[in-house]
């Protein structure tokens, strides 16, 4: 299936990337090429085969519910681009 510029714009929006026009053209071609390559997988019949998402058995891990010290607020906010009153600050989200 050919990838169109419209597809790339849609995916960029989902991925929260403000791509430049040059990037959009570049990725349209490159994604097309990579996806043509992975088309190879359709040669295989995988009906009824369980997918592997992790190679170790994933189980819910339990532990005692003990109180332990957590990161001090100051340190947790240490890398924040902007903070106010002990919180991460973001641009206004409600008009």
């Amino acid at each position: 299936m050919p990838i169109t510029k419209k597809d790339v714009l849609h995916v960029a929006d989902l991925a929260r990337l403000a791509l430049t026009d040059t990037e959009i053209d570049l990725y349209t071609g490159q994604l097309q090429r990579i996806l043509s390559y992975v088309e190879k997988l359709s040669e295989l019949d995988t009906k009824g085969i369980e997918p592997t998402t992790y190679t170790v058995p994933l189980m819910t891990v339990f532990r005692e519910d003990e109180t332990r010290p957590s990161l001090p607020r100051e340190e947790a906010l240490g890398n924040a681009p902007e903070e106010e009153k002990g919180c991460f600050k973001v641009p206004k989200i409600i008009e």
Binding site: V8, V11, L14, A15, L17, L31
Partner: peptide, 13 residues
């Protein structure tokens, strides 16, 4: 990194 994010987002969409 952007190329891989794009490819991953596309294949999961």
């Amino acid at each position: 990194v952007k190329r891989r994010i794009m490819l991953g987002t596309y294949s999961l969409s």
